[in-house]
Structure formats: C-alpha cells, structure tokens
Design a protein around this nucleic acid. Structure first.
Lengths: 188, 188
DNA sequence: CGGCGCATGTAACAAGTTACATGATTTG
DNA sequence: CAAATCATGTAACTTGTTACATGCGCCG
C-alpha cells in the first residue's frame, strides 16, 4: 500500500493543498504513481487522523478555504521506514500483452491499429521524458538528491524506449498476417 | 477490465477446471496477468451466468467433483471484440521507483539491500524466460500463433533485462552515498 | 477411520474508479 | 447577481486481497 507514502513524499518535497497535490499527481510523481483527487482527499484525511501530517496555518489568512498540509516527524519516520522495508515487485499485469496472446487464439483483427496507436502514445511520452531530462538534469551537478531523481527518470526513459521498440516489432509481425485470421467458427 | 478475457483466452487454449486455471495463472498466462483462485472462481461464475462459457460433461463421469469449462461462441466473439477495442495503456505504478524518489528526500538508508534483492529476483525471472524461449521457440517454425506468443515472451525478456540493467546502476549509485543520509530532523 | 491434501467456494476488507454534491470565489 | 470555475468532499461500485469454510477422496 503505497499511496500514503507517495503523498508523504510529495508533501516533503513541498507542502501543498489537496488540489495542488492532485495536479502534481498528473505529472512528476504521477509518472510512476498515479492517483485521483478522491483518493488523495481520502488519504489526506487518514494521514491527518493518524498524526503523520497537519494542516498549515494560512500564510494569507484572510481569504481562507485552501488547506495546506505539511509532514510531521511521525510521517517522515514512517516514510523512512517504508523505504527500507522488503516489498516484492508486483507481477507484471499488462492488458496489451494479454490481448496479443488472445489474438493468437481468436485472430488479430483490428489489433494492428491499436499497436500503432500505442506506439504513438509511447513515442510522445518518451519525448516528454527526454525534454524533462534536458531541462532538469543538464550537465553534472550531481548532488545526491539529484542523482536519485535522475535514476527514476532514466527508468521511465528506458521503459518507454522498450515499448517503442517492441511495439514497432509487434506491429510489423501483426501487419504481416493480422488481417486474414483463421476463425474456426466463422459463423459465430 | 481484463480478468474475464484472460480466463476466456486460457480456456480457449485448453478447457480447464478452476484449479487448473489457477495453476496456469501461476505460470504462463500469469506472467503478464496474475489472478488468485478466488478471483477465478468468482469470474467463472459470472462468465457462466452470462452464457460465455459452460460446464463440460465429465469425460470420466464416475469420480465427479471437478468442473471443467469450455468457451461458448458468445465468449469467443466477446474476446475477439475486446482484442480490437481501444484501451489506453495504464500509467506506470511502481513502488520501487516511488521508494527511490522518497529516498531522495528522507535518505536511502536500507534501500541498497532491497535493490540488490530485487536484482536477484529479476535475474532469476529473466533466466526462467530464457529457458522457456529455448524450450518453446527453438528454430523457426513460425506459424502465426507461435509468432504472436513469441512476441509476448520477448516483451517479458526485454522488461526483465531492463530491470537487471537499471537495478545494477541504481545499486551502484545508492551504495556510493546511501549510508550517511542527511536527516534534517535527526531526533525524530 | 483419522488426518492430509485436493477442489471449490464464502466473507470481509482494502484499494481504485466513476459519478455526483456542496460551498466559495471570481468575473461578466 | 448569475454563471463559471475552483476546491473539497460523499456515495456507490468494481476489482483485488486475505482469511476462513466445506466436502470429498485417498492413504497410512
């Protein structure tokens, strides 16, 4: 269960309101741990209840309805402990791979379009990551926080590169024989 | 929602009982779509209710409590339709990447052990995939079903290779400075 | 015939998703 | 002040997880 820890990390990087967190979970943190605003508000409630975060008194107190949160020592301790815990990697669960396996049985009709569409999406994501890399990790100011964050970004880049490469290959294979599939029950 | 389609695919490859399916979801299909026996029985019930599969009359009818299922035409049609549908790839959600990002804030104490442990797990998985490849895709008997299944396995191999490579790099970086982390609240 | 393992399930819960609700603030 | 939008939140549902329950057959 990682959502609370994702939120703690985000709040340590910068104290935020629920909506600001939601926005950051659409980029940045969200690139490897996505969450909707409903999840975030629910979890903020729990984290406050259990004394891991607290609401900040407002800097501009007059106009008041945004609630900014900051991490308390208990929250930081919990996060540090979680970083060192044993957690087995979750088994891969990818619908596209499943669809390819299904296509081996019922035919790949229509799948080539999807493969090319996914190829486009992954190309775009890869391009975005590369721009972030150029912007945020330019030469080698390699302080330790920076090096770790760069590692994470590099994982994203490698993963997207893999998909681009694999989808290119897969699209070629499916195009070669995808159209006329052998349906053993043609009338069904 | 892909579990029913995973089950339909498995049953088309070979009619099976709930327990047999469970076993196949621990290898084979399970390499990219895992499921527990509770999920499987629940879903088998639904698929039977909606007329996509049916129970087979037993071949060895005397000793009778295993229920074997086969796919009906409606199920095959549903699966073929699903293969061609548009489904956006699910955003990456990886706890280890999140932990690295957290480590950038609270320190990487203890994380090096985890990185090396994961490295071992991924090395083992990669080795297993390579053996399957040698066993099931030897020279080039490239009928169409075979080529698609090989593509899926190659995806698995590439993904595990990526992790092995990335974890090696990550372990090196974390080992270089992981020990003495800068905790801004040392007493917490 | 008593215990072990097989096979199928139920129940309770946790996490994630989708749709909707409410109040406050700005803007025309 | 009406409408749009911002910000927070509820409710209902689906999917996935964990723990337990039941009946059967085999084996010592």
């Amino acid at each position: 269960m990682s959502l609370p820890h994702a939120i703690l990390t985000a709040l340590l990087e910068k104290p935020s309101s629920g909506l600001e967190l939601t926005r950051r979970f659409d980029r940045s943190i969200g690139y490897f741990w996505s969450a909707t605003h409903q999840q975030i508000y629910r979890e903020l409630g729990r984290l406050e209840e259990t004394g891991q975060i607290r609401e900040l008194p407002h800097e501009a107190p007059a106009r008041g309805r945004r609630k900014e949160y900051e991490v308390l020592p208990a929250g930081r301790a919990e996060l540090a402990a979680w970083v060192a815990e044993e957690h087995d990697p979750k088994p891969v669960r990818d619908a596209l791979l499943l669809r390819l396996r299904a296509a081996a049985v019922v035919g790949a009709a229509g799948l080539d379009v999807e493969l090319r569409r996914h190829l486009g999406l992954h190309r775009a994501q890869l391009e975005e990551y590369r721009q972030i890399e150029q912007r945020d990790f330019p030469a080698d100011r390699a302080d330790r926080e920076n090096r770790l964050q760069h590692l994470v970004l590099q994982a994203g880049i490698s993963l997207e590169s893999f998909w681009v490469q694999w989808l290119t290959e897969a699209a070629a294979v499916v195009a070669a024989d995808g159209g006329p599939e052998p349906d053993p029950r043609p009338g069904a």
